[in-house]
Design a protein around this nucleic acid. Structure first.
Lengths: 139, 139
DNA sequence: ATCATATATCTTGAAAATCAAACATTTTTA
DNA sequence: TAAAAATGTTTGATTTTCAAGATATATGAT
């Protein structure tokens, strides 16, 4: 087995593990999966338009319209149109949405802590450095 | 921003990036998303039962029943019951399923290569080592 | 051996998630 | 200004999912 095959295997295991964890967290919360994902992104942007949100989520804008519709209906997010470009809707979290974000974010922080607890300080630093590089160059 | 917050942020970005990439790959293939995920898992196990497959995928067994139904209908996988425990179905890929796995796996190998191309050899080794540790201890 | 409990899987009914394509509106470009 | 491009929504269909209940089988305690 080449190192790239090993890496591919571990990356997939990591992705599936992360995904399973996320699903079980969301299942026991007030949010649906797509709502949670959208809130994760919205929590890191003061305001973001539909196109940008769709790209971050990796889905079509049509799908995002549906998701944001539901977030608005549940009072987690709001749309706001802009003067500069009247086609654009800027999405942001409401106070309630921000609260949901915090709760979900806390779970993620716990997961991170759990993952890091098996590593040395040097390994953690190196891991962060590598992740940053990969994210910046690949995604 | 603490290092754990940074890590959480980068992990989420990594997960979303990986997810978006996977979606766009699958969209341009003959497989649906859930079929592709199931095939990814099945490709790494000679045989696996419904419960195990469900856990690997992070979904309920009911959902997995539907997915495997479709894989069987499309002749990508087969169910096989066991003598030892007659409740259990062992799932495995057909030749056609194995071919689909290989094609999909090749895409993953390319993604891995692309990600690794921005790292030094040492960083790659360290990254693999860290991933293994995290997967073994966390998921 | 029998009965209660646990386990593995499937079924059902409903909701959520998704896409592609068509549409409306607005902006940009030629 | 007219055509092309961009942003977002709608539509119609399919896929994906869950929870809860049903079925069949296995296990454990008596």
């Amino acid at each position: 087995m080449t190192i790239n095959e090993e890496l591919t295997h571990e990356l997939l295991a990591f992705f599936n593990g992360f995904s399973s964890w996320e699903n079980s967290i969301v299942r026991s919360s007030e949010l649906t999966v797509s709502e949670a994902h959208a809130i994760e992104v919205l929590g890191e942007h003061e305001k973001i338009n539909m196109k940008g949100l769709s790209q971050k989520l990796g889905v079509t804008t049509g799908t995002t319209t549906v998701t944001v519709d539901r977030l608005e209906k549940k009072n987690f997010a709001r749309r706001e149109s802009t003067k500069e470009d009247r086609r654009v809707n800027l999405i942001s979290l409401t106070d309630l949405g921000r609260k949901a974000f915090q709760e979900h974010h806390d779970f993620h922080m716990h997961l991170t802590e759990q993952m890091m607890s098996v590593l040395t300080d040097d390994e953690i630093k190196q891991f962060l450095h590598t992740l940053k590089k990969i994210n910046a160059e690949t995604f």
